[in-house]
Amino acid sequence: MKIWSLIKKFNFWQLFKVAGLVLKKPQYIFPTLRATKKTLVICDSLYGQNHHKNGKANAFRHAIWNVLICQNVFKISKDEIKAITWSDKVTTLHEKLAPNGDVPKAMDLHNNQLGRRYFRILKIATECEVIAFIEEKLQQAKLVIGIEEITSFSEDLVYLSE
């Protein structure tokens, strides 16, 4: 993970936002970084570089990232709501800072939210169980074109291209 190279690209406002988040809950930083690294390893293994595009692999990545962050933070906090709230703050900030268009950003936010919802079911699931669960959900993922469509599929993962 090339965290330092990412941080060097941030402007002052972005650094301020990240620092504010980190300072509020420093005990959650390493679990979040572990979840992020694990997410990338899993997605690279299953999908190669395709998870960096806007297809089903990307929907999988966002959902599993949120589940893993929640699981890791839950181990420390012992509080489901705190884990979900933290994951929401981290992944939403990521989307605000990422150079994404409006539709891909809406897609990512939607799939992040579903990942947090899946966590409630997968709270103590193994990595293999999490992967299998999300892969099953991916079978019903919906191809969308615009933001309006994304909001109409509140129960399904969404993606923009094959």
Results as ranks from 00 to 15, higher is better:
residue 2 K to R: 06
residue 7 I to L: 13
residue 7 I to W: 03
residue 10 F to G: 04
residue 11 N to K: 11
residue 12 F to V: 14
residue 12 F to W: 12
residue 13 W to G: 06
residue 16 F to D: 08
residue 17 K to F: 07
residue 18 V to D: 08
residue 21 L to V: 02
residue 23 L to E: 04
residue 23 L to R: 04
residue 24 K to C: 05
residue 25 K to V: 12
residue 28 Y to T: 08
residue 29 I to S: 11
residue 30 F to V: 12
residue 33 L to I: 13
residue 33 L to P: 11
residue 36 T to E: 06
residue 41 V to A: 15
residue 41 V to G: 09
residue 42 I to M: 11
residue 45 S to Q: 14
residue 45 S to T: 15
residue 48 G to R: 07
residue 49 Q to L: 12
residue 49 Q to N: 14
residue 51 H to L: 04
residue 53 K to E: 15
residue 55 G to Y: 08
residue 57 A to W: 01
residue 58 N to S: 14
residue 58 N to D: 13
residue 60 F to K: 03
residue 62 H to C: 06
residue 64 I to S: 02
residue 66 N to H: 03
residue 66 N to G: 05
residue 71 Q to S: 11
residue 76 I to T: 07
residue 86 W to H: 15
residue 89 K to Q: 14
residue 91 T to K: 00
residue 93 L to S: 04
residue 95 E to M: 08
residue 99 P to C: 09
residue 102 D to Q: 13
residue 102 D to N: 13
residue 102 D to M: 10
residue 106 A to E: 10
residue 110 H to I: 15
residue 111 N to A: 11
residue 112 N to I: 02
residue 114 L to P: 08
residue 117 R to V: 13
residue 118 Y to I: 00
residue 122 L to F: 06
residue 125 A to L: 13
residue 127 E to P: 15
residue 127 E to T: 13
residue 128 C to W: 05
residue 129 E to G: 12
residue 130 V to F: 02
residue 131 I to L: 09
residue 132 A to T: 11
residue 132 A to I: 04
residue 133 F to H: 14
residue 134 I to N: 00
residue 138 L to H: 10
residue 139 Q to W: 00
residue 142 K to I: 09
residue 144 V to P: 01
residue 146 G to E: 12
residue 146 G to Q: 01
residue 147 I to N: 09
residue 148 E to D: 13
residue 149 E to M: 03
residue 150 I to W: 03
residue 155 E to T: 09
residue 157 L to F: 02
residue 160 L to T: 06
residue 160 L to I: 03
